[in-house]
Amino acid sequence: MHIHFLDPFIAGQSAIHRLDPRVKFVLAVAFILTAALTPSGAWPVYVLLFALAMGVIVLSELGVGFVFRRAVLALPFVLAALPVIFTLPGVPLFSLSLGSWGLTATADGVERFVSIALKSWISVQIAIVLSSSTPFPELMVAMRAARVPRLLVSIFGLMWRYLFVLADEAMRLLRARSARSGATGLPGMKVGGSISWRGRVAGGMAGNLFLRAIERSDRIYVAMLSRGYDGEVRDLPLPPLRALHWLVLICGVALLGMLAIFGFLFYG
């Protein structure tokens, strides 16, 4: 069993797939920034941002259902914002009573909560489109263009290269453990000894993984040295942006800027 399913990239020929990764990256971050800047309760702006995200999803030909399903993964964190419904002062909306406890929800609180949930949901959709339509090497090009230090970019690259190798090793470790401790997968079957024993076993596996990783990194380093590595990270200069991509970039940033200003002016 290999872990290539880890990579969220989905090959395609859509307009979004073919867009320069630098433009995609800047626009995705600008979109998320716009969503973050939008004041709570500015519903028209949220509707337009959502429509924009939907438009991008449709253009990317990834499938609306696919993006929505993956976007659900980010939702559990919404729980962290739930209490704000009851604690923000404002017009009372409804009351809950849990035994002797009384909670009063306010309209302002609900507005804040829905705004936070919407912001995060729309933002994560754009992030999904970015990572599903851009292979990792192109993301690294975007990072270089964003002036991330070269060394850090090359650490990212090596990490991505060996992530699959080490994730495979981690899965082999997990499989070996289930084989030896007779995991049946049946509900109610107890597996292994006490909690601290299980923790120690998992820890031993982690230690094993780190040890293999450190030794592997030694071998990789020696292999790199023997191929002429001298500590300097060299890469090809970035190609210039094509005129069409410049146009997309400028139009996108202008559009998002207008939406942000619109939100500020009328709802800020």
């Binding site: 060394l151 690259g157 592997r216 990194s217």
Partner: peptide, 29 residues
């Protein structure tokens, strides 16, 4: 960079991958 020199990139990259993969290791509580 001062401490590790040119060994830095492979060691950091592979260990980051190991930490990421290590987050898959779990035990039931």
């Amino acid at each position: 960079g001062q401490d590790l020199g040119e060994r830095q990139a492979p060691l950091m990259g592979v260990l980051a991958a190991a930490i990421f993969a290590g987050q898959m290791l779990n035990f039931t509580v």
